[in-house]
Design a binder for these strands. Sequence first.
DNA 1: TTAGGGTTAG
Length: 361
Amino acid sequence: MGMKMILSKSALLFKGNFNTSYFLKTHLSFSQFGVGFGAHNSFLASFIHSNSYTSDHDEHPKSKYQKVTNLDHALYLFDEMSQRRPFLSIIDFTQLLQSVTKMKHFSHSLDMFKQMCAIGVPVNKFTMSIAIKCCCQLHRTNDTFAILAYCFRRCIVPNVFIFSALLDGLILEDRILEAEIFFKKLIKDNICGPNVVMYNTMIKGLCKFGHNDIAIQLLRHIDERGCKPDVVTYSTIIDSLCKDKLIDEAFKLFKEMVFKKGISPNVITYNSLIDGLCKLGRWEEAPKMLQEMLDVGISPNVHTYNILIDAFCKEDKIEEAENLVDIMLERGIVPNIVTYNSLIDGYYLRGEIVGEIASPI
DNA sequence: TTAGGGTTAG
């Protein structure tokens, strides 16, 4: 099998089914929640700068459990900790659990959590919320509800972190109806006062299912509840509007966020808008947005460049895409697999990749 | 001195 690729310079714990409906008895109607691009200029830059703040990152040094980046090392440490008596602090255990979770070894994290419970480590709300997150990432939300039941048995009252993780799990599994019912029940029965993260999670779910209008209603509702929407709230809806090709609506919300609410956009907000412009073929405006980002002091990241590179490649503008790769490299941003996949697609569309591609293995 | 949310391809 031969390979001939012509790429130019860029070629380079808890078993059992907990009954979710136990928590969702009350079914409420969600209906109770009930400018186009081009006006950006230096005023925007000054406005955003005036609303930005810098924080001193005077963080505490990381513990050895927080520094772990290797699974085998983490498991070794855990084994060592499990055998020590008296137990180390629950903070040490939780930090190690979090490190394994950050490595995305969710099954191992859950196994560790179960082991902690089995040997009697006094798990707390922090530990619980990490375990629930792991369950959700593994698409095992029903097991998550079992952990919640375990919370109650141990007299650990779930808090907004734990409920938000649960809500996120339902949304991840596309169980939007249950998510809505659950969310409303938490509020109606005063089980948990939602904060902006929980609202954002619900808004993400609504957007995921195309309910932009209800998401915007919920955005209005946040203010009425005395909670403040933030850049994630707006960016989530802006992104959804862009994906639904409602770019003018997205820019309207963008302006509301910046000028009315005084919330500074970030690189993710801009990425969504640039992607929306590219996918609608508004080629004049996308580079302007990139320039605007730079003007307001927001550095494009690998996502930003990938969005533009992919769009150029799909439009047979390979040279422009290659120029962007050069700019990325000059700015110290390393192209990743998405960058190369987009470029390969572009070359393929142009017919510059011929023959069969042999397996490299 | 321990926990949560939004962006890119296929």
